[in-house]
């Protein structure tokens, strides 16, 4: 696997066909519908902001799209494969190899150093320790946090930690990055920098980004937006750029 930030051919082509689609998703948590017929599509290399008020179901949509949570109804198709038809192990493998994740917090393993955290998903795909850490370094550089490579998450600032998280999400050169309020715990300056680096790096490697946020200025980093309201999606723009 190529682990340095590559220039992806998909980015140049602007392939219009969606890589990840969801139709009529339905998901009920403890009697309350979190998703009630949500549709979604994202093309390769595209960044889509998922917006909506708190409790509208945007995180649930992300979890269903990423195959973390099975939907009660409806289908999620990634690269022509129905996620529901995959076994749990296959879905895990998919998340390991094809997807990347950035969350608001609680994602870095506190006892591993930053470079080890970035190398973690690579190691999970079977790469040796040394190779994984060597491959992780360029990503730390790309996210401008290579100076804290050997510190632990508890010893770095929130913005730095979030950049490490972005580096980890991108280190496996995923096709889709899922970001759930990636700047939620950051001030606006740090948040914007993280967004810039995230979208920039994703664009360079041709990864699609599903960006869940409630902040319009964060959403403005996306190519288009999808609004979730009461578990239903609404989009005024076509798929693709």
């Amino acid at each position: 696997m190529s682990t340095t930030p590559p220039t992806d051919p998909f980015a140049a082509d602007a392939e219009p066909a969606p890589i990840l689609t969801a139709t009529a998703l339905r998901k009920v948590y403890a009697g309350t519908p979190a998703l009630d017929g949500a549709d979604f599509a994202i093309a390769a290399g595209e960044t889509v902001a998922v917006m909506g008020p708190s409790g509208s179901g945007k995180s649930t949509l992300l979890h269903c799209l990423a195959g973390i949570v099975p939907a009660d109804d409806g289908t999620v198709t990634y690269a022509g494969r129905d996620l529901a038809a995959l076994s749990d192990a296959e879905r895990s493998a998919l998340r390991r190899r094809e997807f990347g994740f950035v969350f608001q917090f609680g994602q870095l393993v506190p006892e591993l150093t930053c470079v080890e955290n970035v190398a973690l998903p690579l190691r999970l795909t079977g790469l040796g320790r040394r190779d994984a850490e060597r491959a992780a370094r360029p990503w730390l550089e790309r996210l401008e946090v290579d100076d804290i490579a050997h510190q632990r998450p508890g010893e770095v600032s929130g913005g730095q930690g979030q950049r490490v998280a972005v580096a980890r999400a991108l280190a496996t050169t995923p096709r889709v990055v899922f970001a759930d309020e990636p700047t939620g715990a950051l001030d606006s300056l740090n948040g914007e920098r993280v967004m810039e680096l995230l979208t920039g790096a994703a664009q360079d490697s041709g990864a699609a980004v599903v960006l869940v946020t409630h902040e319009p200025r964060v959403a403005a980093y996306a190519d288009r937006e999808v609004v979730v309201r009461d578990g239903r999606t609404r989009s005024l723009e076509p798929v693709g750029r």
Binding site: E196, G200, P216, R217, A219, A220, Y221, A222, D223, E225, V227, R234, L236, E237
Partner: peptide, 20 residues
């Protein structure tokens, strides 16, 4: 409101691009 919202966000995206 939705149309207006989309228009606002479109402008915000443009400004964000320019800012970058």
């Amino acid at each position: 409101l939705d149309v207006q919202r989309a228009e606002h966000l479109r402008l915000m995206r443009e400004l964000t691009r320019r800012k970058k």
